[in-house]
Amino acid sequence: MISVTTIGFTKSNARNFFERIRSAGVRKVVDVRLHNTSQLSGFAKSDDLSYFLKSILDINYVHTPLLAPEDEMLKAYKRDGGDWRAYELKFMDLMAKRKIEDRLKPGMFDHACLLCSEDTPHHCHRRLVCEYLNSKWDRVLSVKHL
């Protein structure tokens, strides 16, 4: 089994965010946001986050937009108040079209933490990424949402 976690940064202060990552034994943060320069949280902008992760926790940071929804899809759900189930189906279809299971290897997720903005995984694509990959990789990922 490959241990992978997910985390969102909204509704969290820096101390709580970094402590959750430290406690989980994360070695790499995989940013699955389409736009990683978000102003939602000062510590979560890509350059700052990469610096803080390396300086505070000695953790690597990688932005992986391959695992993000397309801009129009995201806007239709977020900005226009779209239906979660419709968004979920579109995103699952997008991952299938991108063939992410062939373009990525399970080992890249070992002790990794998928990062997005949503505070919980319930209505967030980071959970869908894990579920999709697990369905393609014979449930090799052991997922914990922080």
Results as ranks from 00 to 15, higher is better:
49 L>S: 09
44 A>Q: 04
65 P>V: 01
58 D>I: 05
90 K>C: 12
105 K>A: 15
70 E>Q: 09
91 F>Y: 09
48 D>E: 12
86 A>E: 11
66 L>E: 06
61 Y>F: 10
55 S>E: 13
80 D>N: 11
86 A>L: 07
76 A>L: 10
63 H>P: 03
68 A>G: 02
54 K>Q: 14
86 A>S: 14
72 E>L: 04
58 D>F: 05
62 V>M: 08
85 R>P: 00
70 E>Y: 01
96 A>F: 00
88 E>R: 12
80 D>E: 09
97 K>L: 11
67 L>T: 00
80 D>G: 13
65 P>E: 06
104 L>R: 14
57 L>Q: 07
59 I>D: 01
46 S>P: 01
91 F>T: 02
76 A>C: 08
52 F>Y: 15
80 D>W: 00
82 G>R: 05
87 Y>I: 03
70 E>A: 10
56 I>V: 13
79 R>E: 05
95 M>L: 13
48 D>G: 03
96 A>N: 09
104 L>P: 05
65 P>W: 00
57 L>T: 04
84 W>V: 11
56 I>W: 10
49 L>W: 01
88 E>L: 12
57 L>D: 00
50 S>R: 14
87 Y>M: 06
53 L>G: 00
61 Y>W: 02
93 D>T: 06
95 M>I: 08
44 A>P: 01
87 Y>W: 03
87 Y>R: 14
89 L>Q: 14
47 D>H: 09
79 R>C: 06
44 A>L: 03
68 A>F: 02
73 M>I: 02
94 L>N: 02
48 D>K: 15
97 K>A: 12
54 K>S: 15
78 K>P: 01
99 K>A: 15
98 R>K: 11
93 D>M: 02
64 T>V: 06
98 R>Y: 04
69 P>Q: 00
65 P>T: 02
98 R>G: 15
81 G>M: 08
60 N>Q: 11
81 G>T: 07
92 M>F: 05
86 A>M: 07
86 A>H: 09
43 F>D: 11
65 P>C: 10
99 K>P: 06
77 Y>T: 03
70 E>N: 08
43 F>R: 04
68 A>S: 10
102 D>C: 08
61 Y>H: 05
85 R>S: 15
43 F>A: 13
74 L>D: 09
43 F>Q: 13
79 R>G: 05
89 L>D: 12
75 K>S: 12
96 A>H: 05
60 N>I: 00
59 I>V: 15
97 K>H: 07
57 L>V: 07
54 K>M: 13
96 A>M: 02
95 M>P: 05
90 K>V: 03
89 L>S: 15
48 D>R: 15
58 D>L: 09
82 G>A: 08
96 A>Q: 08
79 R>F: 06
102 D>F: 11
78 K>D: 08
62 V>I: 10
46 S>G: 15
49 L>P: 00
95 M>N: 04
